[in-house]
């Protein structure tokens, strides 16, 4: 008799996100939400500030998610989540995981004060930043998470962004919170595992998710996953986690670190860059990569 063939899924099958959302084609933020909810599960409440996700979820009275959402003010994701958690606990609900779900602008720019405050108090919340590296909802304006060299509508090619991307991971590590991790939608198993791990940790957890935006990056929607894997393989967005402010661990270590050229060329936002510019960017990536490796090695000693 022939043996019955079954496929084993590498991430949970259960879905908490439904069709009918309003995201663009190839949107990375959408997958980020889908995977995080798979990891955390349905007993979850979200605070979502102004960001793509305040639109993606769908218009009143609809929602594409099977979890509760507090659509909150732009700069208040972390503070709103702190209040939600306290309010739920005072009603006897200690089970629900409260997630502050913000884009890069809502995290590294306008929301950083509330985030820093919540992290310093070690609020029992999971903060997720889905990073599409600019203000995409308002039409591609630079944020402090926009990488060096990128075009945006406020950094035109003649004056492209000439400062490096703000290292929010390092800022969060400096708060000595229990858990800081990066993830990429190109590595769903790693992402879901981290979301699940974060769920079971008490205190402030910070998850920084790389989430491409084809409309803003001038990349092809079908390249979203490719970019999300390349960015890890070339060391621009390494996947690592840090526990309690000093225990670093690299989760996906590329066998051979790839050059950044191909990644850069797949995105129209970098089209204006010269070979020399890219060489300079490569040097910066290498420098930061080495720095991170050293931290990981030091943690293993």
């Amino acid at each position: 008799m022939k043996k019955k063939k079954t496929m084993k899924f590498s991430i949970p099958e259960e879905e908490f996100m439904n069709p009918g959302h309003l995201a663009c084609q190839g949107c990375g933020a959408t997958l980020a939400m889908r995977y995080v909810l798979k990891g955390v599960g349905g007993r979850t409440a979200l605070s979502i500030p102004a960001c793509c996700w305040s639109v993606i979820d769908g218009p009143f009275p609809y929602s594409s998610l099977d979890v509760s959402i507090f659509h909150c003010a732009f700069e208040t994701a972390a503070a709103s989540a702190s209040g939600l958690k306290a309010g739920l606990e005072m009603r006897g609900d200690t089970e629900t995981t409260v997630i502050a779900w913000a884009g890069d602008g809502g995290t590294v720019d306008i929301g950083i004060q509330a985030l820093s405050g919540a992290a310093e108090r070690n609020e029992d919340i999971l903060y997720v930043c889905y990073d599409n590296e600019a203000y995409m909802n308002t039409g591609i304006q630079r944020s402090s998470s926009t990488p060096y060299g990128a075009w945006t509508t406020t950094t035109p090619v003649k004056h492209f962004k000439n400062r490096p991307k703000k290292d929010i991971g390092a800022i969060m590590v400096a708060h000595e919170i229990p858990y800081v991790a990066t993830a990429s939608i190109g590595y769903p198993e790693d992402l879901v595992k981290k979301a699940k791990k974060a769920k079971d940790i008490q205190g402030t957890r910070f998850l920084h998710i790389y989430a491409p935006c084809p409309s803003g990056w001038k990349s092809r929607p079908e390249d979203t996953i490719r970019l999300s894997r390349m960015v890890v393989q070339n060391g621009i967005f390494p996947l690592y986690e840090v526990e309690n402010g000093d225990k670093y661990k690299m989760n996906i270590k590329p066998r051979e670190k790839k050059p950044i050229d191909e990644y850069i060329r797949l995105q129209g936002r970098f089209r204006h860059l010269t070979e020399k510019d890219i060489e300079q960017m490569q040097k910066e990536v290498d420098k930061k990569w080495e720095r991170l490796l050293k931290k990981c090695e030091a943690s293993n000693k």
């Binding site: 709103s80 209040g83 306290a86 309010g87 005072m90």
Partner: peptide
């Protein structure tokens, strides 16, 4: 018997109050 959130600004004070109130707690 209350939770006192010692926030970093008035802005966050009100944001936290709103979250707690939405969850059904007197704030």
């Amino acid at each position: 018997d209350a939770k006192f959130i010692k926030v970093e600004s008035e802005h966050s004070a009100m944001a936290a109050c709103l979250g707690a109130s939405l969850a059904g707690s007197r704030t």
